[in-house]
């Protein structure tokens, strides 16, 4: 119960941060990516703020023997850069540039109830389901299904 409350609080903090910083405004996101035009560097400062805080706290937190509600820290350990990583990031970047939305704002914006937000979020979930369905490696249904949260295979 307290574990789920902590996860809910983390989600709420994350969502508020996205909204306050301007990440839920697709035009602003595209303005950040428009480096050869009317460049709006604001979102670089979102990264600076987020990484600045997490870089310091991350180091302090992983000094602990374990997290508060779980046995062990589940941190990605892979270091290899492969075609899936680069291809996936490239496809994501194209979609991010087209729509001005990434997954977090895609969820938060659902609260606005606009047709734009619902269309993007449903298509995003469909894209995820499509990727899961077309995975080739045999471990796809077991460990592969939670790459990002898994102990060995993930990065983010």
């Amino acid at each position: 119960m307290r574990a789920n409350a902590a996860a809910l609080a983390a989600g709420a903090l994350f969502g508020l941060g996205l909204g306050v910083s301007g990440m839920t405004l697709p035009a602003k996101v595209r303005g950040f990516l428009d480096v050869t035009g009317a460049w709006d560097p604001s979102l670089a400062l979102v990264m600076v703020g987020a990484i600045g805080v997490h870089l310091v706290l991350y180091r302090a937190i992983v000094q602990r023997d374990s997290p508060l509600f779980h046995g062990t820290f589940q941190l990605p350990s892979r270091a290899d850069v492969d075609a899936r990583l680069i291809g996936g990031a490239a496809l994501f970047g194209v979609g991010w540039g087209l729509g001005g939305m990434c997954p977090g704002p895609g969820v938060v914006s659902l609260a606005s109830g606009t047709l734009d937000a619902v269309t993007f979020a449903l298509a995003m979930l469909a894209g995820m389901a499509l990727q899961h369905a077309t995975r080739r490696e045999p471990s796809a249904t077991a460990e592969g299904s939670h790459e990002q949260l898994g102990p060995t295979r993930s990065s983010g």
Partner: peptide, 10 residues
């Protein structure tokens, strides 16, 4: 855009 973001991030 949504399809690409969903597929690409996974």
């Amino acid at each position: 855009a949504g399809l690409l973001v969903g597929f690409g991030t996974r």
